[in-house]
């Protein structure tokens, strides 16, 4: 055992070359061995629109999570939130790339992420709302990851092999995101008076946006409302431990899936897109 560097001893006996883990080895390409041609019988336009919408959900959520960097209440939480954001960014890249392929107009992931205007984005509006306090961000993460996990679990058998492969990769990530958010929801909901009050407020703020989610998922073998029961089960288990429940609320009319957004999306995109738009074609 090598005591000089703890990490070196982690890879002792790993003569196969994986030992150079620090440079990023032993990773798996989620699309390895997957045929990326769009199969016959799959509607290209529908596939492009579906992947674009799911990709936008991930991209916008990722940007919001990245905003916690340097602002999170603890260094450990900052890393955790950034990790989750990077998982979602990875999903966004794969889905936007697939949307571009299916569309067949020559747009790649960067063109779709950086050179569309707010009205062309199809993310659900819950994803674009400002971060608020830690309680709101955790509650939103709990709802969005539960919803996305339930949706992607169904998409692992989607007719498009790339969408199915992305979903299979994503369910493992999303299961962790949900677990992380749930653990915090329990601790905040059952913590101090202050943390509980903030969680109660967060649940009330989330409530009007929930109806949009179950309406936004239909396609590729998923019926609208299919995931509602799964999401309700997660929220019920949190409620059982803490008594926190989502209050009745009138849904906000419209849907991000139709390009209708809150006033919060444009400033988010301005920040996300500014470098790419100031230096088109730049590489780094």
């Amino acid at each position: 055992m090598n005591d000089d560097h703890v990490y070196l001893s982690l890879t002792e006996g790993d003569a196969g070359g994986d030992a150079r883990w620090a440079f990023g080895t032993g990773f798996e390409d989620p699309l390895h061995g997957v045929d990326t041609t769009v199969p016959d019988g799959v509607d290209r336009d529908a596939l492009a629109a579906y992947c674009l919408a799911l990709g936008d959900d991930a991209l916008i959520s990722s940007q919001r999570l990245a905003e916690w960097c340097t602002r999170a209440p603890e260094l450990e939480e900052e890393v955790a939130l950034a990790n989750i954001g990077l998982d979602l960014l990875g999903q966004a890249r794969l889905l936007l790339s697939r949307a571009g392929q299916a569309e067949g107009a020559g747009r790649d992931e960067d063109a779709l992420a950086y050179f569309r205007d707010p009205a062309d984005f199809r993310n659900v509006r819950l994803a674009e709302l400002p971060n608020g306090d830690f309680a709101f961000s955790i509650t939103r993460l709990l709802v969005l990851s539960s919803w996305r996990l339930a949706l992607f679990a169904r998409l692992t058998s989607a007719a498009d092999p790339v969408l199915a492969a992305v979903a299979a990769k994503a369910v493992k990530e999303l299961a962790y995101h949900r677990e992380y958010a749930a653990q915090w929801a329990l601790r905040l909901g059952d913590g101090t008076e202050e943390s509980r009050a903030r969680m109660v407020r967060a649940f009330a703020e989330i409530a009007p946006w929930l109806a949009e989610l179950s309406a936004a998922e239909a396609g590729f073998g998923v019926e609208p409302g299919a995931t509602a029961q799964d999401v309700a089960a997660v929220l019920a288990s949190v409620a059982a431990e803490t008594g926190l429940t989502v209050p009745e609320a009138t849904p906000v009319p419209g849907s991000g899936r139709d390009g209708e957004h809150t006033e919060h999306l444009a400033p988010l995109l301005a920040e996300l897109q500014s470098v790419a738009r100031a230096h088109p074609e730049a590489t780094w």
């Binding site: 055992m1 001893s9 982690l10 002792e12 994986d18 603890e74 450990e76």
Partner: peptide, 18 residues
């Protein structure tokens, strides 16, 4: 942490948590 092919857990550092 126990590495992928390691037999023993190795101390890698410390952190704070509730």
């Amino acid at each position: 942490i126990r590495g992928r092919r390691g037999l023993n857990h190795v101390h890698v550092g410390s952190l704070r948590a509730p």
